[in-house]
């Protein structure tokens, strides 16, 4: 079957298998930031945004993207918030093998966009869907905390 979706702001039409997951379709069309780690919705390497919400694309039907907006890390490379998150992740040493990094970045991005709760617990919660086997999540949380602090300082300054 054929689906039409808005991928990173641009219309994309693609022929898919009715039982295929969104992960395979996205990789097929060159979105290599979307990784396969488990295909059971547990590891989060395949996290993308579906209408702005983080989802595990391995447990989302490809067909479901029809008529919807899909955003991958590729589509956010120019976004100031994403750039800030990437920068902090690198500088803080949160990227080891890097396989989990795009998924984590998407989850953090979605959390920052949606939520006012930037407590450590909320940030940990935001990362529950992204398993990392290399790190102890310390550096990612440090990076996220820095971005959170920057935001709080900014909004503190503005008001």
């Amino acid at each position: 079957m054929k689906i039409e979706m808005e991928l990173n702001g641009r219309p994309v039409a693609h022929e898919i298998a009715p039982g295929g997951n969104l992960l395979s379709v996205l990789r097929e069309i060159g979105q290599f930031s979307v990784k396969l780690g488990c295909e059971t919705g547990d590891c989060g390497s395949c996290t993308v945004l579906l209408d702005g919400e983080p989802v595990n694309s391995c447990v989302v039907a490809a067909a479901r993207a029809h008529g919807h907006q899909i955003t991958t890390l590729e589509g956010l490379l120019g976004d100031p918030l994403m750039k800030e998150l990437q920068h902090e992740m690198v500088v803080k040493g949160a990227v080891q093998c890097g396989y989990c990094s795009p998924g984590m970045l998407i989850s953090l991005y979605a959390h920052f966009k949606a939520s006012g709760d930037l407590s450590e617990h909320a940030l940990r919660e935001a990362l529950t869907g992204n398993l990392c086997r290399c790190t102890g999540y310390v550096k990612q949380l440090e990076a996220a905390q820095t971005v959170a602090d920057n935001r709080q300082n900014e909004s503190g300054g503005a008001s």
Binding site: F32, M89, V90, S101
Partner: peptide, 21 residues
């Protein structure tokens, strides 16, 4: 010194760098 990890930026950009990419 804590220099930038040499491959970190490309990994954080999700570039096609692993076997399957």
């Amino acid at each position: 010194h804590n220099v930038d990890k040499v491959d970190a930026f490309k990994l954080a950009r999700g570039e096609a760098v692993y076997t399957d990419d």
